[in-house]
């Protein structure tokens, strides 16, 4: 009996090692500008072509108003797709931390796609379900994201990173700037950019080309 139980605080189960060491792919939605590079990277890695319709990650965009929402598999702890699969073709890979489809067993019924609460399972040209497998533990989309909107790492690292980025919107310049920004900060950022530009010009005078 620990101290918490004696004062009536809810007992939380201890974190299992699996979740501490497991790496997850998360997204900082505010940083995504909707360039679709992750889709192209995903499809070349998995299918050998550049085709957003065969990508495991989809970015829903309305570029003109900057709403970009990447949709991808969040690798749920208790995955509805695995539960819904009638032939148990979806299993958790302990090594990579991803739910993977065993295409040898898959019967192509699409139940997993219907069950997914995020719409993260797509169907390819032959109507087979396709989903993110974290590229076997080294996701390609993370490497091309120009604004670092996709973050891959252990749960602790990633949550810490998110905390820093989100706080930037509130406490400007406490950490290096993410992309989230309040309207008042934009003016300040613009002023800083102008200052940087003057700095570049000054340095340019010393160049001997």
């Amino acid at each position: 009996m620990g101290w918490s139980a004696s004062v009536g605080v809810k007992q939380v189960p201890k974190r299992e090692v699996r979740y501490v060491s497991r790496k997850i792919l998360v997204i900082d939605y505010e940083s995504c500008t909707g360039c679709h590079l992750c889709e192209l990277a995903c499809s070349i890695k998995h299918e050998g072509v550049f085709n957003p319709y065969l990508s495991r990650i989809s970015v829903l965009t309305k570029p003109e108003i900057q709403t970009s929402t990447p949709v991808y598999c969040l690798q749920c702890n208790d995955a509805p797709c695995a539960r819904a699969c009638p032939v148990n073709a979806i299993t958790f890979n302990d090594r990579t931390g991803a739910w993977e489809i065993d295409y040898g067993r898959c019967i192509g019924c699409r139940e997993c796609a219907y069950a997914c609460p995020f719409g993260a399972i797509k169907l390819n040209v032959t109507a087979e379900p396709i989903k993110c497998d974290l590229c076997g533990g080294d996701p390609e989309c993370v490497k091309v994201c120009p604004h670092n909107a996709l973050i891959f790492g252990s749960e602790d690292e990633v949550i810490r990173e998110l905390q820093k980025r989100k706080s930037v919107g509130v406490v400007y310049s406490l950490y290096e700037k993410g992309s989230q920004s309040l309207p008042g900060n934009r003016v300040r950022e613009a002023e800083e950019a102008v200052k940087t530009l003057y700095g570049i010009w000054a340095k340019r005078k010393d160049l001997n080309i």
Binding site: T33, C35, Q66, A190, V194
Partner: peptide, 26 residues
């Protein structure tokens, strides 16, 4: 007409397909 004046009306940034820069303001 200075860049920081235009920043007052900015609410986001966007870009074209497959561009790593995102130069366009919203």
């Amino acid at each position: 007409l200075r860049p920081q004046d235009f920043a007052r009306f900015e609410v986001g940034r966007t870009q074209c397909y497959s561009c790593p820069i995102a130069c366009k303001d919203v």
